[in-house]
Design a protein around this nucleic acid. Structure first.
Ligand code: SF4
Ligand code: SF4
Lengths: 154, 154
DNA sequence: CAATTGTATACCCCGTTAGTATTGAATGCG
DNA sequence: CGCATTCAATACTAACGGGGTATACAATTG
C-alpha cells in the first residue's frame, strides 16, 4: 500500500511518453493508443495536466499535446500533485487537513517532517531520471547511506 | 494526496505512545483514552500490530500491550506495512500487483526503483526518530543533498 | 463551412476504508 | 473452582472516493 492513485500513475506514464516525443505534438488518440489506456481515461488525465501547465494543448486539425518543459525539468512530485493535489502523508501534513485529534495529537507536528523528506525525493526525481532507473535498486550510491540523514539506525 | 491510511496513521501514533511507556504494559482502554481514539478502532489496529509482532499482548487482569522492541528499532515502514501491507507506490511495485498494461508499459520496470527509495526513507525512520523531528524541515543535514543520489537536478 | 481535435460536465459503479457490534477465549486471583 | 479482567476473532454496515464512461460543446484550420 501507500500507493499513488491509478490516474496519477497514468499521468506519469503519459508525461514520460510526451517527453520522449518532445517537442513534437501528440493527439489524444495517439496517446491513448501508444500507452494502451482507454481514451476516456486519458481525457480526464489530460485535463489535469493542462490545468497544471505541465503540457500545452492545441486544438483543431493537427492539434494535440506537447510537454511544456524538458523532461528533466518535470518532477514526479509535480506530476502526481497535478492529479491528486499536494502530497500529504497524513491529514496534518496538508493545509486543509481536518483531523479531529490534531490538537491533542503528539505527532501532529512530527509528520510534516517525514512528509517533507518523501516529497523531496519525488521532487528531485524527474521524468528524465526514470530512464536511469533499473529494476529494483536504483543504483543506490554509497553516499545515500548518510544522505538519509535524519534517519539513522540500522 | 499520496496519503497513508488513517488506520496506519493511528498505528504509528499508538506505537509511539507505547514506546514512551516501554517496557510498561498498557491496556487497550488506556491506549484509547490517551490517544483520544475510539476504542473499537483501537481494537482493530492492535490486531494488526500483534500479528506483525510489533507489540506483545498479554491477557487477563493487569494485561495489555507492550512494544516488542525498543522504539529506535521500529521503523515507520514496518508500522505502516503492518496495517496496509508492503509499501508499493504502483501496482508494478508489488508482487501480487495485477496491472493489465504491465507487459506493454515502459515504466513497469522503473517504478520499483523510485519505490525502493521511498521505502528506504521510511525504513530508516524509527519511532524514536520522530522525537527529533520539528515542524516541516526535519533538520535536513547537508549530506542529504548527495544522499538523494539517483535524484539529481535542482 | 466542415472536418478535426481538445474542453467541459455530469453521471454511475464498485471497491476500499473506517467504524461498530457481538461473541468467544485466555489469564490471573482469591 | 469460578469470577473478573482483558485481549481475540468475526462479521457487518455505512460512507467516501477512485476511476471509468457518455455526451454535448467550443475552438482551430484550411
Ligand atoms: S494529527 Fe495525529 S492523528 Fe491527526 S493526522 Fe496528524 S498524526 Fe494522524
Ligand atoms: S505497469 Fe505501468 S501502468 Fe501498470 S502500474 Fe506499473 S506503471 Fe502504472
Amino acid at each position: 500500500m501507500l500507493k499513488v492513485g491509478r490516474l496519477a500513475d497514468y499521468a506519469v506514464l503519459i508525461l514520460h511518453h510526451l517527453g520522449r516525443m518532445r517537442p513534437a505534438r501528440l493527439a489524444m488518440d495517439s496517446i491513448a493508443e501508444v500507452t494502451h489506456l482507454p481514451l476516456p481515461t486519458v481525457r480526464k488525465v489530460m485535463k489535469y495536466l493542462v490545468d497544471a501547465d505541465l503540457v500545452i494543448s492545441k486544438r483543431g486539425p493537427n492539434g494535440g499535446y506537447q510537454l511544456a518543459r524538458p523532461p528533466a525539468q518535470v518532477s514526479l512530485a509535480e506530476a502526481i500533485a497535478a492529479v491528486e493535489g499536494p502530497l500529504a502523508l497524513t491529514e496534518c501534513c496538508s493545509a486543509q487537513g481536518n483531523c479531529e485529534i490534531h490538537d491533542r495529537c503528539d505527532l501532529a507536528d512530527r509528520w510534516p517532517g517525514v512528509n517533507a523528506i518523501v516529497v523531496k525525493v519525488l521532487e528531485r526525481t524527474s521524468l528524465a531520471d526514470l530512464d536511469r532507473f533499473g529494476r529494483h535498486e536504483p543504483h543506490v550510491p554509497p553516499p545515500l547511506r548518510e544522505l538519509m540523514a535524519p534517519v539513522r539506525h540500522l
